[in-house]
Amino acid sequence: MSRQTPRPEELELPEFLMPYEASPPAPAPPAATAAPDLHQSGLWIFILGDMTLFGAFFAGFALQARSQADVFAGSAETLLLGVGAVNTLILLTSSLFVVVATRAVAADDRPAAARALLATLLCALLFAGLKLTAYGVELSAGYTPTTNLFFTYYFVLTGIHLMHVVVGMALLLVAWRGLRREAGGVSVSFVEGAGIYWHMVDLLWVVLFPLLYIAWLP
């Protein structure tokens, strides 16, 4: 090698590869042009937005249920009501554990928070396992998403909800692992954010369960 490797600061890098504060030193921006500082409150855009999506699903379900009441009632009878009810209790319990966890984090009792999150995770696993078992029973009985409009909504809505549960489990896992580290593994606001998300998952199921299982009981 005849040429010496240039040191990083001698390299001609594109402007955007410079550290942000090193590219034209930005003074404190004037208040008029400053971006609104929403920080964690941006989470509510996601929460309310996602609940709007499910709200649209529920509205579509309710509108179409009116025209096919017999089909919907007949199909809802075949669902495993017991499993649905147990899953509702499991999710409600998990939300209680989330409350315990966020309170413990706020009180700086990280081990207690980690234990509570672990309990939440176990609830989530139990919920997902029961839901998949219910799918298996229903599919092997010959009910598929294309059987009729009720089963279309049933499989799609609970399926998208189950995806939310999986995402929530990933968030809780990250929070749990972070809390088990000594310090600075995960921020309080992350645990709170994951908790808010989990409450939303719970809330959506609390609406889904009566809509799909209960509303059609004689």
């Binding site: 942000y20 504060e21 930005a26 609104p36 929403l38 409150s41 941006g42 509510w44 937005g49 999506l53």
Partner: peptide
């Protein structure tokens, strides 16, 4: 960065769109 490049709500809005 000390001055965030884009506001955080944009991140949450993008995540919401994934679900949409």
């Amino acid at each position: 960065n000390p001055q965030p490049v884009l506001p955080r709500w944009v991140a949450f809005a993008n995540l919401w769109l994934v679900f949409l």
